[in-house]
Amino acid sequence: MNIIICIKQVPATTNVQIDSETGRLKREGVESIINPFDEYALEEGLRLKEKFAGKVIVLSMGPPQAETALRECIARGADESILLSDKNFAGADTLATAYTLAQAIKKINPGGGSSTPYDLIICGKQAIDGDTAQVGPGIAEKLNIPHICYVRKIEEIKDGMLRVERLMEDGYDILEMKLPALITVVKEINIPRLPSLRGLLLAKKTKINLWNAEIINAEKDKIGMTGSPTTVKKIFTPPARKGGETISGSPEEIAQKTASRLKELKII
């Protein structure tokens, strides 16, 4: 079973700085980490590999320094890694990012005699910097494969079918879909492992494949800023909600006061 994990390198804090002029994230001078939700994606991929054999390939689009994040994935047990780095990729919105990652996935050929180049693509549910949760499903659409978001458990993989539990606000759904497919995962799915010393030593030496727009046959007008139909108009912090009104007294008093207040507000 070959699995592709899409990861993003993000600033190490949830308190990201935003450039007020461009509306984009400021990355300079901030320590970078693997997007925490992507760590669950990697862990799930590694567990599937341990169960079914195959390869785990990690894919990321980002600046050259995103290599560090990919090396960390190798240290934890990923077999190969690809960094999509090209100045023409810069400024991509979720649509252009999904297109770029999908183009790269079309190029991946892990070999090993499997009929499809990959069986499953796993993404974190969202990145902690942008918080859009759009790239995972976007990749699936571009590749024309089914997808399920917010997976909290993989129940079974059998006869080319995948059965999962999808986390909902008030419980969970059990869903099945045909492989190859894409899932995005939530933190409830597993506890990510730490890297091993042998993994860390290997990661130091390993080759990170560097792919640019040309290698993945990306159309110029579909990548980067040019390929991004959305632009950030304005970034602002929504005003904090004001505290509600407290009505106190005996139960009878509360009922009376509430009813008259609601009438006053013309709600009833």
Binding site: S196, L197, R198
Partner: peptide, 10 residues
Amino acid sequence: EMAKTDLFRI
């Protein structure tokens, strides 16, 4: 956890 992370190999 120590075993998985290779500490006993050091």
